[in-house]
Design a protein around this nucleic acid. Structure first.
Lengths: 339, 339
DNA sequence: TTGTAAGCGTTATCAC
DNA sequence: GTGATAACGCTTACAA
């Protein structure tokens, strides 16, 4: 029992395919009765237009490609949630592909999407990516492209990011305003840029409040693990006994800090305030609950896909496309680990 | 600059589309020189066959639909990782859709996939789903279907599951073998079935080792949170002071148990052994590290998609399709919270 | 060895 | 109001 086609309906009704097509699409020049009989039969046979045929004709696939480093990570799975939901609401389907943070795999995935003729591409660049020829290729082939999260200035296209610097600035300012003066910062590795931005926000907040920035107060976590948070807290408190706050660039590390403090009788937040970043669900599960910075991750996905679809629509209508960068706002969530 | 087609190449070379097509597909009846010139030009123009056209002709989409309750959850994002990777390796693209654990949304998503003419469907049923008419519809329309994780006996199709009962059995047996006799079990809510299976494994292990099963030793967690683990541990230890082991149906709850013990000076594992379930990455981040049961989640996704693709291939070749249920093996990971 | 023609399912154009 | 025809890009019997 293959699928019902316009032809099937036309044959049964003894009319032409053209008329069937028109009847189904509410063309004005179709007799009411013809129209009704067509619709009735179509309904009865459960006719569904074949998207493959429509897409071939319209030279579009109504499918979007998304390349992310991985999905089994809270940040990306949340983004993907936003992406798929929003795309579906707008009539697009999404193909998710992984780069595994590898430049060459990313390149392969771009090629695959190109071959599959997706209508547009959304991507968060692999951390490793330095070579951006494959991304430029997309631009050259005039495939609408939007970069999100991990982006680069070298590509001219719309971008959507969390405003990491400002988020970090607000978090540190909050610590300062609640009386902290000796704030240690645990930052992440050099690429990706986000960690540098968070570091810059930290520095800027100190400067604004006339606190001298001391590089030795900044520790670089390479693994971003709970254990690193634990160990670096130990180290930081040994090297800087005057520390009264720790700002970690991600919740898991902050949770490690909290664990160290608790294991060593350091009262949080009385003696030391701890501020995380991300508002990961586990930050609600510590005692006291972790203060952190909420990032609108799902909204990031939605916004990115919206911009992409807008752009696709504009190009189709031959409107001029203007690129821009959206910075999504964040929020400090003060819970139990800050004063 | 539209995309290069067979026609373009044919015109430039002054030959027919057919010959170009054949040359590109290594048909034996093409002159070597013709073939080479075609290939050369195709290469130069970066010709890529239009999958829309191919699919229309072949009446297949080389696309698979996957419906899961959500993706922003460790289990599903790991499964999705396996699914997408394996599908891509086998030449298929994947459309992920969410049911949000709602029966009616799940139905909508099935319909959407049907309209989009995916070649097959993989799904983990919404917990809420009782109505299965939409799933039967898939069977009726002869769309290859594989159920994984949350399945039902009411649908005749291949299924892939983690062997929850056996996994649980092994975990509890491990506790018994390391000297525990009074084992409390924190189980999950009634649907999904997995929690009941884990409970049954617990019960069976007790029976095998001649330990009387006492229903009051079983507590039902509805939220599966850290706090529930904490609170139920308090309650369980009050009601059953003789308890020497806690087996929680998921790591987060077990972590809550551990936290309660540590906050109350109960030595783990000396006084009480704690066994989790899932081998969530956070189970490596506690001190001591949590003993747990590893589930091959990514493999679950790979296996499910493999079976689906096999089935698609079999149907295409008009081979008989036999359904079966694969139960993936699990492993007890003994770490620091058990003796 | 090469090419013609039909067909996959849909839609737009243009006759009638 | 209706329908024949061409076109989207590709594949494959079947001729030549």
């Amino acid at each position: 029992m293959g699928n019902v086609t316009l032809k099937n309906i036309a044959e049964i009704l003894g009319i032409s395919i053209t008329t069937v097509s028109k009847a189904l699409k509410d063309y004005p020049d179709v007799n009411k009765e013809t129209r009704d009989s067509v619709r009735l039969l179509a309904e009865k046979l459960d006719y569904k237009p074949n998207p493959l045929a429509i897409n071939l004709r319209n030279k579009e696939s109504k499918t979007l490609g998304v390349i992310i480093p991985r999905v089994d990570h809270n940040f990306y799975s949340t983004v993907v949630n936003g992406i798929i939901t929003e795309a579906e609401d707008r009539g697009y389907l999404v193909i998710i592909l992984f780069s595994g943070d590898s430049s060459s795999l990313e390149e392969d995935q771009v090629k695959l999407l190109l071959e599959k003729r997706v209508d547009g591409v959304l991507m968060s660049m692999a951390t490793e990516t330095e070579e951006i020829g494959h991304i430029k290729e997309l631009i050259k082939k005039k495939i609408p492209l939007v970069l999100f999260d991990k982006t680069t200035e070298e590509i001219s296209c719309s971008k959507v990011r969390i405003d990491d610097k400002k988020a970090s600035f607000k978090a540190v300012e909050y610590l300062i305003e609640t009386g902290c003066k000796n704030i240690v910062h645990f930052r992440g590795p050099l690429p990706p840029q986000a960690y540098t931005d968070r570091f810059l926000g930290y520095k800027e907040a100190l400067e604004k409040h006339n606190i001298t920035y001391d590089p030795s107060n900044v520790y670089v976590c390479d693994e971003l693990t709970f254990n690193e948070g634990y160990e670096f807290t130990k180290k930081a408190l040994e090297e800087h006994p005057e520390t009264d706050a720790i700002f970690a660039m991600t919740d898991l590390v902050a949770l490690g800090s909290l664990a160290y403090c608790q294991a060593n009788g350091i009262r949080v937040p009385d003696q030391i305030s701890i501020m995380g970043f991300s508002n990961w669900f586990m930050s609600q599960n510590s005692t006291p609950k972790l203060s952190t910075v909420h990032q609108p991750i799902k909204e990031l996905g939605k916004e990115a896909i919206s911009i992409l679809i807008e752009e696709i629509q504009q190009r189709k209508n031959e409107f001029p496309v203007k690129h821009f960068t959206a910075q999504l706002p964040t929020e400090v969530i003060a819970r139990g680990t800050t004063r």
